[in-house]
Amino acid sequence: MIFGLEFPPIQNLVEWPNWFGPEGSWYGFNKIAFINVIALVATTSLFFIAGRSKSLVPKGAKNLVESAVDFIRDGIVLETMGPEGIKYLPYLVSLFFFILITNIFEVIPFFHMPGNARMAGPAVLALLTWAYYIAVGIKHQGPKYFINAIAPAGVPKALLPLVIPIEFLSTFIVRPFSLAVRLFANMLAGHILLVTFSVLCITLFTASLLAIVLPLSFAMLVGLTGFEIMVAFLQAYIFTILAAVYIGSSMHAEH
């Protein structure tokens, strides 16, 4: 309570009651789950519409989907993994679209909640990516993958006691943790930022004298909404490109 500004408790901002299923049960379906399902349906229908038309000239949804796939293939896969990474394209495209659409609900009216401002989504995606790049490493290098990963070739023997724990931590612990936390914290921060300015606008609207600064606050809110759209896109891109880098680094022993 500062100058009549009543900030809601954070639980009210990010936690949503179940629509069905008892609270705390493993299948309780709430707003976040609904956003995830919308992401699935939206991506599926976009790709379905795009894949249905057989004309070689893209337009509408097809144009959007094709430019996105082209962007992921040329800008992410080929840049970080090279041509042999093309077979991981489906995973990366799914990641990109899922994260982008769940993020973009941050600014969609009547939702105003990024699906990834809850730790669950990012944690699941990061764990899946973690399992995926370990699986790719084992597939490409066999059990030697773990040795190659924690003890890079060319490191002097004397440094190994120092290098092995650091590499183990950074490869198998910090990577998934930072992947999840990066996405989650960015979206949560953006969400709290938008909520802060919305609350400020509402408070100023009812304030008598301070209402003269309302336009500034509102302009800030509008600007931040645009900024958050950019952040939603950027976080999807960064998550995808980091997944690509991790998968690519598992394909060959580091040197």
Binding site: S178, V181, R182, A185, N186, L188, A189, L234, I238
Partner: peptide, 15 residues
């Protein structure tokens, strides 16, 4: 962007 992602992680952990 990769470098920004790695650098930013520290600030986000702080958040």
């Amino acid at each position: 962007f990769l470098g920004i992602a790695f650098t930013e992680a520290l600030a986000l952990i702080g958040f």
